[in-house]
C-alpha cells in the first residue's frame, strides 16, 4: 500500500470520519458543494458520515429530505445542471432502485443527449454490502447495474485513505460519479494524512505484492483477499492483491501488469457472482492477456440468491477469506 504512506503526519481514523473530512473539506473549498439526502442532518447520517455537518454548515448546505429517492437523485441533477456541485446520498444503495430513472435515464445521459453541452458535477453516495443481518432489501451489491451505464463513473474504496481521496476527486469531477461505500468498512480504521491529498479516479492500487496469483478485487473483499494472502503466505504461496478502487473507468493496465507477473488471476467480488462486475474484469484479462495465463481466470462472488437474513446463511452466501483461499489454491492447480 505504497500510497497510504504519505510524507507528512497521519492519524488513524474511521472510514466514516475520512468520508466526512472529504465532504467537509470540499464544502469549505467550494461554496457550491452541498450534501442532500435522508437523515443526514439531525440524525447525522445512518452511518454517521455527516455527523456534525448540519451544525457547521446549516440546513442550506446539509439538506435533509423526506423519504423521496427519485427526488434526491433528481435534485442532484437539477442543481448540478444549474451551477451547483451536489453530493446526493442514498441511505442504502438498495433504495437507488426507486431513483433508477433519474440516475440512468437522466443523470447519465443528459450530457450526451445535449451534445456534450451539459455539465453534471454530481456525486451519488450509497452504502452497500452484506454481513449486517439486515436482510435482502438492505444488503445488496448492485455496482454492476451502474457500471453498465455509459455516462456514470463508479468508485468504491477499501480503506479510509482511499475513501477520502477518491471522494474528494469525485466531488471535483464534472461528471456523475457513483460512490459505493461498504457498510462493514465505515467502522474500519486506517491512516489518513493530515495534509490534503487526492486519490485519482481510474487508478488501481496494489494492496499487497505477490508473485504466484493475482486477486483482483475491491471494497470489503480487499480485506478478505489480504487475509487469505496472509494465510497462504505461511504455506509458501505468494498472493498479489489488486484493489481496482474505480470500476469505471477501470485501470486495466494495472490488472494486466499484475496478471502478466503472476500468470494466474482470481477475481473477487461480493455481488452475485453471475453477471457481476467481476465478469468484466475476467473477460478483460482473457482478451488482453490470454497468452500470459497459466490457469483459467476464476471468479469468486455471492450465491445466486437475495441476501438471506439468518446469520449462517448470510455469512455463507458471500465470499470470505476461506473461499478466496480455496479459489487461489484451485488456480494454482492450473487447468480445471
Amino acid at each position: 500500500m505504497a500510497n497510504t504512506m504519505s510524507n507528512g503526519a497521519t492519524r488513524e481514523i474511521f472510514m466514516s470520519e475520512a468520508l466526512r473530512e472529504a465532504i467537509d473539506e470540499e464544502m469549505q473549498r467550494d461554496p457550491t458543494v452541498f450534501l442532500v439526502g435522508e437523515e443526514i442532518g439531525v440524525w447525522g447520517g445512518s452511518y454517521a458520515v455527516s455527523a456534525g455537518l448540519l451544525e457547521k454548515y446549516g440546513p442550506d448546505r446539509i439538506v435533509d429530505t423526506p423519504i423521496a429517492e427519485a427526488a434526491i437523485a433528481g435534485l442532484g441533477i437539477g442543481a448540478a445542471l444549474t451551477g451547483s456541485r451536489p453530493i446526493a446520498e442514498f441511505m442504502y444503495s438498495d433504495f437507488m432502485g426507486i431513483a433508477m430513472d433519474q440516475i440512468v435515464n437522466q443523470a447519465a445521459k443528459n450530457r450526451y443527449m445535449f451534445g456534450g453541452k451539459a455539465r453534471l458535477p454530481l456525486t451519488y453516495r450509497a452504502p452497500f454490502g452484506a454481513g449486517t443481518g439486515n436482510a435482502a432489501q438492505h444488503t445488496q451489491s448492485l455496482e454492476a447495474w451502474f457500471v453498465h451505464v455509459p455516462g456514470l463513473k463508479v468508485i468504491t474504496a477499501s480503506t479510509p485513505y482511499d475513501a477520502k481521496g477518491l471522494l474528494k476527486s469525485a466531488i471535483r469531477e464534472d461528471n456523475v460519479v457513483v460512490s459505493f461505500e461498504h457498510k462493514a468498512l465505515y467502522a474500519m480504521r486506517g491512516h489518513v494524512p493530515e495534509e490534503e491529498y487526492l486519490v485519482p479516479i481510474g487508478v488501481a492500487d496494489v494492496k499487497r505484492e505477490g508473485t504466484d496469483v493475482s486477486v483482483i478485487t475491491y471494497a470489503r473483499q480487499v480485506h478478505y483477499a489480504l487475509e487469505a494472502a496472509e494465510q497462504l503466505a505461511a504455506e509458501g504461496i505468494s498472493v498479489e492483491v489488486v484493489d481496482v478502487r474505480s470500476l469505471y473507468p477501470l485501470d486495466t493496465d494495472a490488472i494486466l501488469r499484475s496478471v502478466r507477473k503472476t500468470h494466474r488471476a482470481v477475481v473477487l467480488y461480493e455481488a452475485v457472482r453471475f453477471g457481476g462486475f467481476g465478469a468484466e474484469i475476467a473477460s478483460q484479462i482473457q482478451e488482453l492477456a490470454f497468452d500470459d495465463l497459466d490457469a483459467p481466470v476464476l471468479r469468486v462472488g455471492a450465491a445466486h440468491a437475495p441476501v438471506p437474513f439468518s446469520e449462517p446463511l448470510e455469512q455463507g452466501s458471500f465470499p470470505d477469506a476461506e473461499k478466496v483461499a480455496a479459489a487461489i489454491r484451485e488456480s494454482l492447480q492450473g487447468v480445471r
Binding site: D94, F95, I98, A135, Q137, P306, F309
Partner: peptide, 23 residues
C-alpha cells in the same frame, strides 16, 4: 420464512398478510 427474511420480511400469505417490507 425459514430464517431467510427476518423481522422486516415476515409474510403469512395464508392469512392474507402479503408481507412486511424493508422499502
Amino acid at each position: 420464512s425459514g430464517g431467510k427474511g427476518g423481522s422486516m420480511h415476515i409474510a403469512d400469505l395464508e392469512l392474507g398478510n402479503l408481507g412486511a417490507n424493508g422499502i
